[in-house]
Structures are given as structure tokens and as C-alpha cells.
């Protein structure tokens, strides 16, 4: 099976700090890949390479390659605007703009100059349906997004991405600000979305990785320790370090 994202010998430095060390892995399309590991192991940093959000960090340098649909995203001919449209990111804290529900979802379409009017309205409806928000919010589209609950806000942030038709959703601990029930709901949503989208999720929560993902990668101090199907990682890992981590003996 071919890969949606392919990482080849990726190294990333923040000034002199070597945050990601010679990582090679590939992400399968239309599936959920989990990246786990202790804090500061480079998992979020790697995720932020996939849509080049690390470019915003002063003093970051990379070597190696990341291919998205076979194209090197760090190639100078890469159109960042298009890359970020295709590879969207959901952040740790729900972070809707201080705008109405509708304007939040329509934001990306306006940025990319997509058709206005009825097409935008349809896209907003479709995106809100996809995250299960439409029935709750269809009469409140002009309400400020900041008055929604945390779970609704996170769903809204996902809708905001879906409205510009991405292919990959990067999720950086998307449930860490949510309670267990909301977490369960978002996990169900992720599984539904994985039918159409490729999802990469960074999580602290090993149970979450076990529950939602098909592949799991364990990182340790910037290195990829083991990458395999989630079942193997949790039930029959090939490395002692992985077994110790997933069984909670350290970390």
C-alpha cells in the first residue's frame, strides 16, 4: 500500500537542540496513526513538520525529506498555502476565532478565495454535519463560537478544517482539554473521519492510542523507537523499551 506521508531521514534542530533524530516512517492513507511518547520526545515537533508549522519557530532547521502525496514539502517550489490547506491541524486547546460559528467555519474558504454565497453555506453545513454539530447549532450559526462548550469548540475547529477539503488531519493532543465523555465523543468522530481522511494524532494517553489508531509510533528523546500496527505495539512489541513503556513500567 502506498503512503500519504513519507518521512525520510528527518532531523530537526531548534538552534543546537536536536529535537527529531533521523526519523523514517510512512503514514497510511485513510487510517489513524498515533504518535506516543513522553513529553519532550519530539512527537509534537514531528507533527508540526507535516504542514511546516515549525517554519514559524525561530532557529529551527531540518534535514531529510517529507513527501506528501509523493512531493517533497520542504522543496522550495512547495506552495505553503496549498500544503496547509491539504494538511490541516487541530490543536491541543480548542481555539475558535472570536467570530460567529458560521464565520469560523467559513474562514478557511475566505482565506483561499473559494466561491462565496450559497457554496460557502453548503460547505459550512456539510462540515458541521461531518462533526455532528449541525443539528445542535443550525439555528445558532450567528452565535459567538466562544460561547460553545469545550467539546463543541473542538468539533468546530475540526469543521473549520473540513470546510477547505483537506486530505490529512494532524491532531496535537486534541482531547487533553476535554473531560472523559467529550474525549470519547471526539474519538468516535475521529474513527468516522478516518474513512475519508488520513489522521495523525499525537497523544499522551496510551489508552487513547490503543482505542483509536491502526498504527502506533513510539518516540523517545527524538528517536523513533518502534513503529508498527497498534495491536503489535500494545500486545507484542519487538523491543523491550516499547513493552516497558506501553505497560507503564516507566514514562
Amino acid at each position: 500500500m502506498d503512503s500519504k506521508i513519507e518521512v525520510r531521514n528527518l532531523n530537526l534542530y531548534y538552534d543546537t537542540f536536536h529535537a527529531v533524530k533521523d526519523v523514517t516512517m510512512s503514514v497510511k492513507p485513510q487510517s489513524i496513526t498515533a504518535i506516543i511518547g513522553p513529553s519532550g520526545c519530539g512527537k509534537s515537533t514531528l507533527l508540526r513538520c507535516f504542514n511546516r508549522m515549525n517554519d514559524l519557530v525561530e532557529g529551527s532547521r531540518i534535514s531529510g525529506q517529507i513527501l506528501f502525496n509523493g512531493q517533497d514539502i520542504y522543496n522550495s517550489s512547495m506552495d505553503l498555502t496549498q500544503l496547509r490547506r491539504k494538511v490541516g491541524m487541530v490543536f491541543q486547546r480548542p481555539n475558535p476565532f472570536p467570530l460567529s460559528v458560521f464565520e469560523n467555519v467559513a474562514f478557511g474558504r475566505r482565506v483561499h478565495g473559494l466561491p462565496k454565497g450559497s457554496e460557502t453555506q453548503m460547505a459550512v453545513e456539510k462540515s458541521l454535519c461531518a462533526t455532528g454539530l449541525w443539528d445542535e447549532l443550525k439555528d445558532k450559526l450567528n452565535m459567538s463560537a466562544l460561547s460553545l462548550s469545550a467539546e463543541q469548540q473542538q468539533r468546530l475547529c475540526i469543521s473549520r478544517l473540513l470546510a477547505i477539503e483537506p486530505e490529512v488531519l494532524l491532531m496535537d493532543e486534541p482531547c487533553s482539554a476535554l473531560d472523559p465523555i467529550a474525549t470519547g465523543n471526539i474519538e468516535d468522530l475521529m474513527k468516522e473521519l478516518a474513512i475519508n481522511y488520513t489522521i495523525v494524532i499525537v497523544t499522551h494517553n496510551m489508552q487513547q492510542a490503543a482505542r483509536v489508531s491502526e498504527q502506533t509510533a513510539l518516540f523517545w528523546l527524538g528517536e523513533l523507537v518502534e513503529y508498527d500496527s497498534t495491536v503489535r505495539i500494545f500486545e507484542n512489541p519487538s523491543k523491550k523499551q516499547t513493552e516497558d513503556y506501553v505497560t507503564g513500567r516507566f514514562g
Binding site: M53, N95, P98
Partner: peptide, 9 residues
């Protein structure tokens, strides 16, 4: 807000 805006392209 800035991050999200960039993230959306």
C-alpha cells in the same frame, strides 16, 4: 489565533 490562521493556509 495566529497559529490557526497560518495552519489554515
Amino acid at each position: 489565533y495566529r497559529e490557526v490562521s497560518y495552519g489554515l493556509g
